[in-house]
Amino acid sequence: MATGGRRGAAAAPLLVAVAALLLGAAGHLYPGEVCPGMDIRNNLTRLHELENCSVIEGHLQILLMFKTRPEDFRDLSFPKLIMITDYLLLFRVYGLESLKDLFPNLTVIRGSRLFFNYALVIFEMVHLKELGLYNLMNITRGSVRIEKNNELCYLATIDWSRILDSVEDNYIVLNKDDNEECGDICPGTAKGKTNCPATVINGQFVERCWTHSHCQKVCPTICKSHGCTAEGLCCHSECLGNCSQPDDPTKCVACRNFYLDGRCVETCPPPYYHFQDWRCVNFSFCQDLHHKCKNSRRQGCHQYVIHNNKCIPECPSGYTMNSSNLLCTPCLGPCPKVCHLLEGEKTIDSVTSAQELRGCTVINGSLIINIRGGNNLAAELEANLGLIEEISGYLKIRRSYALVSLSFFRKLRLIRGETLEIGNYSFYALDNQNLRQLWDWSKHNLTITQGKLFFHYNPKLCLSEIHKMEEVSGTKGRQERNDIALKTNGDQASCENELLKFSYIRTSFDKI
């Protein structure tokens, strides 16, 4: 039985969820670079991206490699990797027998973001014989899940209580170790020597080791999670996991709180800001991140802002960003909400898709409305799209047979046209069989910064309504002859009103 693990408890099935942008060198404390989270699957090609990484700022997932063999891993080693800020997950990587050479110096898994409450997941690794993470000293947050690894031993010899604050939620089941077939031998045991430290858990006094050649490092209890030197002297209180010299914040392997210019500090002093819960960055760093993602459509890219001495992905609820200094300031009234469309555009074809934009005031991208039916549609669209004030790209209304009016965009005031449909149009209306009105132009103002209007096959939309939009939106004169079809717009509506004058002759039985 794995020490510190839980057996036999019912657990939810383990679901495996399925960018080499360097964020800056980590400095003297770390020998390499800070790398983003990685999802490495199918083959070993991307694994080489770990070569210079000291910190993975995010998670590391290595999974679904069915053609790899043990010899493929023999020359692979990433000794610079010290810390993973989120979680480490391995799933069905064939041929991998140990992690001792792959990650010989991995010391800390912070667990800032977890995989279903777990910071370390080893699942269905069919050839893994031992973990071998002999320098792993601290899992700051989260638990361990090690399950269905039929060859995995050296679990009962690990004292997880020396690595985690609590072992109650560890789930370590259905491994070879369960069948008591392992016969784990710690260093020196074969020669009758006791080389590794022994600890007591559940009444068992057991030597602690990761492999037959690597003991588990056990520091004096007084050192807590700070770690200790090879001689057993406690590291500085700002260290986490390990250090090369005692009581020196510049000799830590990793930091308990924050890293700044080669030393570990309790908090980031001005003019620095907390970033990702582990390091200090200056304003320029946060500003660069903001600008890199301002026009990016890459998933996970955030326009970072500053709030409460932190550089964070977005302002919290009730705050909006001051564009001059990136500071989050309290909103006066309802907060603006910028919604970034991942692929640059979004099609609204149902109430469900409209709900995804609920509360958005600025759309960074283009909207395509293609709704053919739905219950209580006008009210639903207004509830979900009615706060949109600005669209950076274009607005396209296409084959939306259920629409009679666009009044559900009740606050839309600006279409920038930074991206144009077919390279020309910022407003595009095609084949809307029941569209009769755009907006009530006596109450609604709309500016279209650039781009043209396109109207074709809107049989109940009168040309007068379209011409009014040209005047109000500032697009009059931009359109070419064929942009607004004269014969297919309003051709099934009563669009022309003329005053009919009647004269009559009164007659009676005795007068003409």
Rank of each mutant, 00 (worst) to 15 (best):
R110N: 04
I109L: 08
G95S: 05
K217P: 13
R145Y: 12
N135V: 01
Q303C: 15
N43K: 09
C234Y: 14
G241H: 05
N149E: 00
R69Q: 10
F116S: 11
F205V: 14
D159W: 15
P316D: 12
S284C: 02
K67G: 03
I109A: 00
A156Q: 12
I62F: 09
A156P: 11
T45W: 14
P313L: 05
S324Y: 03
C219V: 04
H127A: 12
D159T: 11
R145T: 03
I139N: 01
N135Q: 11
E151W: 09
C196M: 03
E97F: 14
H302N: 06
H307I: 12
T211E: 15
F275R: 02
D247K: 06
E130M: 14
L120G: 00
L60M: 05
W160V: 02
F103Y: 01
A119S: 12
D39R: 10
N170V: 10
I306H: 02
D169C: 05
T107G: 03
Y319V: 04
D184Y: 09
C234R: 01
F115V: 13
N242F: 08
L60G: 00
L50G: 02
E33Q: 10
N295P: 04
C315F: 03
M137V: 11
S161I: 05
G262Q: 06
L60T: 01
T320C: 13
P249M: 06
T194S: 11
S143N: 13
H48F: 08
S143D: 09
L120T: 01
L44M: 07
M83F: 09
V265G: 03
G318V: 03
W160N: 01
F258Q: 13
P313N: 03
D169I: 07
E147M: 06
V34Q: 04
D178F: 10
I163P: 00
G300Q: 05
T157Y: 07
E147H: 07
L81D: 00
A119L: 00
K67N: 07
I306T: 07
A119M: 00
R141W: 10
R162I: 08
Y134R: 12
I40N: 03
K129N: 09
T189A: 10
C243Q: 01
C209F: 02
G188D: 10
R162Y: 09
F258V: 07
L164R: 08
R297F: 03
M65T: 03
D39Q: 15
E151K: 14
V108D: 01
N195R: 08
C53K: 00
P270A: 13
N135L: 02
H28G: 00
L89H: 05
C286T: 13
F205L: 12
V108A: 05
R110F: 04
P104L: 01
V200N: 14
N43T: 08
Q216L: 12
S296T: 14
G142Q: 01
L128R: 00
D247T: 03
V121W: 03
Y118I: 01
M38W: 02
G232H: 06
C215D: 13
G183T: 07
C311R: 05
E97K: 11
N42R: 05
N202F: 12
I56R: 13
L60K: 00
K191A: 06
P36Q: 04
N295F: 12
H307L: 05
K176E: 11
H212S: 04
C280K: 01
I56F: 00
N117P: 06
